[in-house]
Structure formats: C-alpha cells, structure tokens
C-alpha cells in the first residue's frame, strides 16, 4: 500500500468506443521497439472474450482466503501466458497504399492473415434481435493496491510508488521471466520479445509528475474519464467511489484492489413479443454483477434516481459531476488535491 493513490474513474455510460484513448496511448508509448502488438490501454466490447483473448479465464490474482471481503488471501493463483497470434493478434500492416491511393475499389485490409486483435469483436455483444446489447469496456493496468504482479516477481523488479501508487517495472531488473504476466488477472503486463523484458502501462507517470493527466484520460472524447487522488474528498474519484458509490472496480474477486473504477452501464428495456418495452434492462443484471461485483444494483439505482431528478429539472450534484460541463473539472492531480 502506498501513502497516496491516484485513481481513475471511467463512466461506461459515456464511453463511445472511439478508441481515441487507445491511440493516444499507443502513439505515446507502444508504437515501436517490439511493443507494436501491445495495447497498454484498449477498449473491448462486452460481452466478449476481449483482449488478450479470454483474459477473464487466464488465471492470476489472489486465492480468496482469510481477510476482509475483496482483500484476497496471500497465495497467488496460477495463470497462463497469452500467445501472440491467437490471443493478442499480430501487429499486421494494412494495404493503405492500394486502398487509398491506387485506382479501383480495394477495401482496406490487413496484409497478413489475423486471428485476433485488440477489439476483434467490436460491437458484437450478445442477445437476440430486438434485444441485442453490448457496451464498451476500456481497460488499462489498474495500479492495484495489492498488485499480484509485484508479488509474483522473484527479482523485486516491480514496485508500487509510495507517492502516487503507480505500479512500475524496473527495466534494469526485469529479466523477462513473466511470472507477472501470468499473475496479473487483467493480463495487463506484456512481454516484449525484442527487449526480453515485460512492460506495462506506466499511468503516464512523466505527465502525472507535471500535473498533466494521463494521455488516455486527457484525450477522451466522451469525457468519460476522471482522474484524482483517492483521498481527495473534492475529487471525482472519492466522490464517485466513496460518496456516491457509483464507481466500482472490475473483477474485485481477484483481490488485487484495482484503482481504476467504472460507472456501470445503464441500458434500455428489452421488448416483449408484442414489441412493448418490458421494463427489464437489456444488459442482464447478473452479467454486470459478474464484472463489477454485488455493488452494481445499488449503483444503477442511484444513477437512475439522479437521472430522473435531472429530467424533472431538479438539481443533481452526481449528474453534474458525471456530465463534466468543464473538461478541466475532471482532473485534480496536483499533490494538494486541488485543480491544475
């Protein structure tokens, strides 16, 4: 545990799946030197197998055991290493020249056959017409309070920074053994075969140290991402996580105590055989519980109640916070916890 923790809240009701965050991250950190296949930030469509493929069944995290709920035990669960072609997807080149600059109607296509990719199942989702559903789930390293990756490394190459809780791999200590890759239940550590080392999201620490938000958060077109200190009571993270309890960690059952939180997605009602709305949300409640834990129902109830208020023209602090009228209000990074 660090003395302070920087946290991110992603509002899944505002994420439009545009992947601006993904590219902001990629062009900043992972477009070269053996990292081409990696997406430290990516956005997957849910339900789906995600990226890397089937990461939710690839093991890792803490055995549930003694300790408070969600705090996990002290034994790591085994995990497996994702494969390049089948689970991450090769960083294929596209036929830009043929498709964009040559005569004729050539569709834009990867030039090598691909088996998977960072958003392979885009907009696929689940359910039958007219009750199909999907939503976007942006994912990055959660800079966990109890990081399984850190515990798994025999060389103490992974550390959690005291001043902001950012989890980093020391490239000079890492020898590419990949116990961390297997141990992370979110599969958010990647092995760089060219460098022979494991690499991961650095929460844009060089930006954070200057008080600038992470590239994924700052560039977010949907104004879906808030960043603040988890103990700053005026910050969005504290207010959404602790005060309003509408922001929840992903797969808390792994016991790593993630510090990226999600406002769960609301959905419109399903239609019955006569085409009449049933009143039951089309994203099944038990599916959301499987992702975000038992707090989902209360969070969705709060959101619906506050939306109804706003619709009636009444004041809602929660809605004002989530709407984020001013972009700058979404980020409070300076060490005292006030606005940049």
């Amino acid at each position: 545990m660090s003395s302070r923790q920087l946290a991110m809240v992603i509002d899944l009701n505002k994420c439009i799946g545009c992947q601006t965050c993904t590219l902001a991250c990629k062009s900043q950190w992972t477009d070269r030197d053996g990292r081409e296949f990696m997406y430290w930030n990516h956005v997957e469509s849910k339900p789906g197998k995600g990226y890397p493929r089937d990461w939710e069944n690839a093991g890792g995290g803490w055995e549930s055991g003694a300790g408070a709920a969600g705090s996990g035990g002290d034994k790591l669960k085994p995990g497996r290493l994702p494969r390049l072609e089948e689970d991450y997807g090769i960083p294929a080149d596209f036929n830009y020249d043929a498709a964009l600059f040559q005569e004729g109607e050539q569709p834009l296509r990867p030039m090598q056959p691909m088996q998977w990719g960072p958003n392979w199942e885009e907009d696929q989702g689940a359910g039958e017409f007219p009750n199909g559903y999907f939503f976007y789930l942006p994912r990055l390293c959660n800079h966990c309070t109890k990081p399984a990756c850190l515990a798994a490394c025999p060389r103490q190459a992974i550390s959690k920074r005291e001043e902001d809780g950012i989890v980093l791999i020391d490239p000079s200590r890492c020898r590419g053994y990949r116990y961390c890759v297997a141990a992370c239940p979110y599969k958010k550590i990647y092995f760089n075969p060219l460098a022979g080392r494991s690499e991961k999201c650095i929460f844009c620490y060089p930006r954070v140290e200057k008080g600038i938000p992470q590239a994924c958060a700052y560039q977010c077109v949907g104004r879906a991402r808030h960043v603040s200190w988890l103990d700053d009571k005026a910050g969005a993270a504290w207010r959404l996580v602790h005060e309003w309890k509408v922001a929840l960690p992903l797969h808390p059952e792994h016991g790593t105590q993630p510090n990226v939180y999600y406002v769960p997605p609301l959905s419109t009602a399903t239609f019955d055989a006569e085409g009449k709305p049933t009143g039951t949300p089309r994203i099944p409640a038990d599916y959301l519980v499987s992702l975000f834990g038992p707090g989902v129902q209360a969070a969705l109830d709060t959101l619906r109640r506050e939306i109804a208020r706003k619709e009636k023209g009444e004041a809602s602090e929660l809605m004002d916070l989530l709407i984020a009228y001013r972009h700058g209000d979404m980020f409070r990074l300076d060490r005292l916890g006030s606005q940049p």
Binding site: L81, P82, R83, L84, D87, Y88, G176, F191, P193, G196
Partner: peptide
Amino acid sequence: PAADAEKTQH
C-alpha cells in the same frame, strides 16, 4: 529433443 531458440510472448 527440441531446440527452443525463440523467445515469443508465451
């Protein structure tokens, strides 16, 4: 029996 001379992701 097998030469494993390649370091891939897994």
